[in-house]
Design a protein around this nucleic acid. Structure first.
Length: 308
RNA sequence: GGCCAGAUAGCUCAGUUGGUAGAGCAGCGGACUGAAAAUCCGCGUGUCGAGGGUUCGACUCCCCCUCUGGCCA
């Protein structure tokens, strides 16, 4: 019998954390968070981190990075696999739960990232090159060096063009790497569940959750982070719920406008998360309109027998 | 009660001399291999308030009705 990993994903505010907690409790295991923003210390309210007192089992890979520091899919892969291996060795079934599709796949599927460190200097250089050449110019540069990769990336997607150029510096073609994505091969025996529900209901839940974050003191949390100098941090600065509040605090918009924007961006984020799950044929869907939490737990347990 | 203005996409509105309609925002779909809550791509979704008339043809003109603002009583 091969033990493997149970993964639970789905759009923001769909109830993944509660489900994962219950499943882990039932199996006597632990939950590994797969969330690009929950890794940051002090970003609690806005990332909807389950409060410590409410956790039924240990929640791993949250609060592991300072908000001023950069984190990445490659680092998550290393960290998550370490936790997965540790639990598997103890005979437990790891529950990987989170909404960051890339992180989930980086942990569970074969995915090789070129060399070791991110070279900030090099990235900066490419960014400057991009500013100088413009999107088209930068894309043309990539086309000269690596036509297949240029073909695969839209010229306007400067961020990815830069990444492809970085990879080329390390002797790897973006196009080659990307090819593996369409036919993923599992690193661990695994079953991935994705939550879904009626779109209007989901959006209502998102709105309510944002209002609750504000009521729970999101503004104060952001003020605290900014006063610690995290306002400039590259990654945490991208988090929905944080960048908007910072804009409000610095007078670029009203608080009400910021709140509406948080809701809107959360909706779009939820859509992107769903689209990530849809394209993976291995996804087992859980329609939360038709199951309550208890039924969903039972469903996950029965559908995951092959890995536990 | 009278007069005026308006009624077109989910919202705010545009619509040229009559040829069945288009912008922004919202929304929807997609991509994704070291920033991923990031980044990027694609898509108008419509009884033009209802009914009648003129016309080959009406969102455009005429009549009537309904509703919403405003003004006068």
């Amino acid at each position: 019998m091969t033990k493997g990993v149970i993964a639970i994903t789905g759009p923001t505010a769909s109830g993944k954390s509660a489900l994962a907690d219950q499943v882990a409790l039932a199996l006597g295991s632990e939950v590994i968070s797969a969330d690009a923003m929950q890794v940051y210390r002090g970003m609690d309210i806005g990332t909807a981190k389950t409060p410590v007192a409410e956790r039924l089992v240990p929640l791993l890979l949250v609060d592991i990075v300072d908000p001023a520091d950069a984190y990445s899919a490659a680092l998550f892969q290393r960290d998550a696999r370490r936790e997965i291996d540790r639990l598997l060795e103890k005979g437990q079934v790891p529950i990987l739960c989170g909404g960051t599709g890339l992180y989930l796949r980086a942990a569970l599927d074969e995915m090789d990232f070129p060399s070791g460190q991110i070279d900030d200097g090099r990235r900066q250089r490419f960014q400057e090159l991009a500013d100088a050449l413009g999107p088209e110019g930068l894309h043309r540069r990539l086309a000269e060096l690596d036509p297949p990769s240029a073909q695969a990336i839209h010229p306007n997607n400067v961020r990815r063009v830069i990444r492809a150029l970085e990879m080329l510096d390390e002797g790897v073609s973006y196009a080659d790497q990307k090819a593996g994505f369409s036919r993923p091969s599992a690193r661990y025996p695994q079953v991935t569940f994705a939550l879904t529900m009626d779109r209007e209901r989901l959006y209502r839940r998102i709105d309510e959750r944002v209002d609750r974050m504000i009521a729970d003191g999101l503004v104060k949390e952001v003020e605290g982070l900014v006063s610690q100098g995290a306002g400039e941090a590259i990654t945490s600065r991208q988090a929905i719920g944080y960048k908007e509040i910072i804009d409000a605090l610095e007078g670029r918009c009203s608080l009400d406008e910021a709140i509406e924007l948080i809701k809107m961006r959360s909706r779009r984020y939820a859509k992107r998360q769903l689209s990530w799950s849809r394209r993976d044929p291995r996804t087992i869907w859980i329609d939360m309109d038709e199951m309550d939490l208890e039924e969903a737990v039972a469903f996950v347990l029965s559908e995951s027998e092959v890995v536990r």
